[in-house]
Design a binder for these strands. Structure first.
Length: 489
DNA sequence: GCTGATGCGTC
DNA sequence: GTCGGAC
DNA sequence: GTCCGACGACGCATCAGC
């Protein structure tokens, strides 16, 4: 499909806000398109195919007569993301620009800014595809869940998919639970939750491939794990890669000699059979028969106290928390349902707001990202522990913005520094060493729990208190902690 | 060769 | 990753 | 219930500019 032609479609999509109309447009376009064109189309509209680029280069003359097609654009952009260096990137973008007319450039700029911005994403594309291939909505969703990407949905519908082994599916996700009281199951699994790297392991008995949470092939990054999975038949497993007793931050460091290990918590495919429609209970049995030594530590119970006990044990051993799972649940790829629940350790401290950034998009009108600080040891100076934009409602943003604006001591345009005055109760999941902040530490997953109107700034915590609350020393020295790191606030 | 900026991956 | 909000 | 936008922390690779 000529790019020029596609841009016409894109403009039509932008012109209407009607979902029905959009689907109609997509349907007609898809129907007329060839297979490669269809794939290019769903990729450009439904995925983030464009790499980001900060400085837009000028058009670079290129002696090339052929008119740009959508397919060429997509393959070029995909190639860029993989291999191209920055200078190379700019050259490629420049060349593409040179070959585009005004309207094509307009579209391309939108694309480079992150998204095509025509109000179409996976959901609508899926519906339109369904109409083209004469499939019901539920059927399409089913296929999409299993295949993971729209491209693979198309191949599936064309009868060219069906390859199960070595084509990754989206891993099942979990929702958060904040207390053990809320566990909704009569009987449930409680498993250790490991703070590592999600891994989907495929094997046909000889070859092994490992995929990340985002379906990237990470086989080559963990050679020491391959031999665990050969000679045991055909299967797909779901698990977590980690190194015992080290923090997530250390796990991310590449230059260490330490060996990775893996724990498995699910099996999705075994010797020719997809197991996603088998109950977890059954899958667990199969997994245990196949890899007894690699199964995640777990208990099966009806008692919430057991869960709590297991949670404490998990923390003691340096894990992140526990997962609670319904033994009767299916494996639903890509879904964040209520069949899997996670309960993680959280810490709470009182911090002072020392600055804020203006928001973007729907938060444009508010100061929406707050700089958080605690006292240094002598309570002489406030030192920053990172920032957060999470936890406040729209209403609270409004109030906070006005309040902070009245306290500005330095206005830098995109952000302001304010006189310390606002104290917040902040929840976070881990204290990390920071190369960036003057405190030397940063909070991971920080969010504001509430504004402490009742507290003066000198009642905020010191760095020493933050360290102690988060059990930082405990974990790095490997000694166990009895502190009240809890999920129940 | 160093430093800071930028992009992308993990969570 | 988390969170609030929109659908 | 589910999805989406708005953004957090780090480490690593790359590269521009010195």
């Amino acid at each position: 499909m000529k790019l020029r032609k596609f841009v016409e479609v894109w403009k039509k999509l932008r012109e209407t806000t009607s979902k029905k109309e959009k689907i109609q447009i997509l349907k007609e376009t898809l129907r007329k398109a060839s297979l490669p064109e269809r794939i290019a189309l769903v990729k450009i509209l439904g995925e983030r195919v464009a790499p980001s680029i900060t400085h837009l280069p000028p058009p670079v003359p290129v002696f090339f007569k052929e008119e740009l097609t959508l397919e060429e654009l997509v393959t070029t952009l995909e190639g860029m993301k993989k291999t191209a260096k920055r200078t190379e990137r700019e050259k490629i973008v420049g060349e593409l620009l040179y070959r585009m007319n005004r309207e094509e450039r307009e579209f391309f700029l939108h694309l480079l800014s992150g998204e095509p911005e025509c109000g179409v994403r996976e959901g609508m594309l899926l519906e339109a595809l369904g109409e083209v291939y004469g499939k019901k909505k539920e059927e399409m969703e089913e296929i999409f869940l299993r295949e993971g990407t729209l491209e693979r949905v198309i191949l599936h519908l064309e009868g060219k998919g069906g390859e199960v082994l070595f084509s990754p599916l989206k891993p099942m996700l979990a929702s958060s639970l904040h207390s053990f009281e809320e566990i909704p199951f009569l009987e449930f699994y409680v498993e250790y939750k490991i703070d590592g790297i999600r891994a989907q392991v495929h094997s046909d008995g000889k070859r092994v491939k490992i995929f990340s949470r985002n379906l990237r092939d990470i086989t080559g990054e963990f050679p020491e794990l391959h031999s665990l999975f050969t000679g045991k038949g055909e299967f797909i497993l779901d698990g977590e890669i980690f190194i015992p007793r080290i923090t997530f931050q250390e796990l991310m460091r590449k230059d260490k000699e330490k060996t990775h290990t893996i724990r498995i918590f699910d099996i999705i495919y075994l010797n020719g059979e997809m197991l996603d429609k088998r109950e977890l209970r059954e899958r667990r049995k199969m997994l245990e028969a196949l890899f007894p030594e690699l199964v995640i530590p777990y208990v099966l119970t009806r008692k919430k106290e057991d869960a709590e006990r297991f949670f404490k044990q998990a923390l003691k051993e340096g894990f992140e928390g526990v997962m609670i799972k319904d033994p009767h649940s299916f494996y639903i790829p890509g879904r964040r349902g209520s069949h899997w629940l996670k309960i993680k350790r959280v810490y709470t401290v009182d911090l002072v707001v020392i600055g804020a950034e203006w928001g973007h998009g729907r938060r444009k009108k508010w100061l929406s990202n707050y700089y958080l600080a605690c006292w240094d040891e002598r309570k002489e100076r406030l030192v920053q522990l990172g920032k957060t934009f999470k936890g406040l409602s729209d209403e609270e943003f409004e109030v906070m913005t006005q309040r902070l604006l009245s306290m500005v001591v330095k206005d830098e345009g995109w952000r302001v520094w304010v006189q310390p005055g606002v104290v917040c109760e902040v929840e976070f999941e881990e204290l990390q060493r920071s190369p960036k902040y003057d405190s030397g530490y940063a909070l991971r997953f920080a969010r504001i729990k509430r504004i402490r109107e009742d507290k003066e700034i000198w009642e905020a915590d010191t760095i020493k208190e933050v360290l102690s609350v988060s059990g930082f020393w405990d974990r790095s020295t490997g000694t166990s902690s009895d502190r009240k790191s809890t999920s129940e606030g």
